[in-house]
Amino acid sequence: MSETLSVPGLDGIPVQLRRSARARRMSLRVGRSDGRVTLTLPQGMSERQAGAFVRDQAAWVRRAVAAVPALRVVRVGGSVPLLGRDVPVVAGSGRAARHLGATIAVADDVQAGRRVQALLLSLARTHLAASVDRYAEAIGRRPAKLSLRDTRSRWGSCSSRGALMFSWRLVMAPPEVLDYVAAHEVAHLLHMDHSPRFWTAVERLVPDYAVHRAWLRTDGAALHAIDFTG
């Protein structure tokens, strides 16, 4: 059962306590997409010690929570980012959402957000597969598999067997950012590390990759704050 700590000076922000037998010291984390504050602490450490630790970090916690992007709910009458541009979501007919170029049309009911999500998932697969194919051909390697997930901690990964995984939310980012992540993971087919030779391989594929990497750091959290559940 999770514990919640209320700490003076946090303006009512709750802190979730997570006890870990593997933890050797306390660590404090603020979720970049949901603003959830979690304190991991070793087994046996008291709430008094935990509270004192958080109080010392109160100013940082308040700043980090304030910087979390506001939740954005996808519904008819609103909009959703697609390849870096906000696309209006309008009322339509049929069971599936449709991308009509300038708009996304979807039935105006409680499933609207989920249907738009399904459309974006399909578009993400199309765009990421095309990018991966292009970069894989450039390096002369083929991935074993390509899958999509809704990951929070990483935008993509490459397994030791050459299976690539991407966050489908990349389809909401500018296309150059999506391309960079595809190139990054394809480069891992050559080098399964982040050594200088790996980054040299990425730079050969995407010479201005640093710009797109920076975009993910500054703006990527906003993509996770988009809610399709209605």
Rank of each mutant, 00 (worst) to 15 (best):
T40M: 06
D109N: 04
W199A: 00
D208E: 14
T103Q: 04
V132F: 00
Y209M: 03
V15N: 00
A144K: 06
R204C: 12
R22W: 08
D108L: 00
P8D: 01
D179G: 04
V171N: 10
S33T: 15
V87H: 09
T151R: 10
P196H: 04
Q43F: 08
P42R: 05
W215R: 00
A138R: 01
Q111S: 08
D109W: 00
M165Q: 07
A105N: 04
L223K: 11
A163H: 09
P14H: 03
R36Q: 14
R213M: 07
S195D: 08
R149F: 11
W168C: 10
M1C: 12
H188L: 03
S79P: 09
S153M: 09
L5S: 00
R55S: 06
V61E: 12
A52L: 10
A124K: 11
L39E: 03
L146P: 14
F228M: 07
M1N: 07
A97R: 04
T151N: 14
L71E: 13
R62E: 12
M165V: 03
A52C: 13
T151A: 07
L71C: 12
V90D: 09
T151L: 04
V186G: 04
A130K: 11
V73P: 08
S79Y: 06
V54H: 07
G94I: 11
V30L: 00
W155R: 02
P88T: 01
H191V: 08
L190S: 09
S93I: 13
A107Q: 01
R152I: 13
D56R: 15
A105P: 11
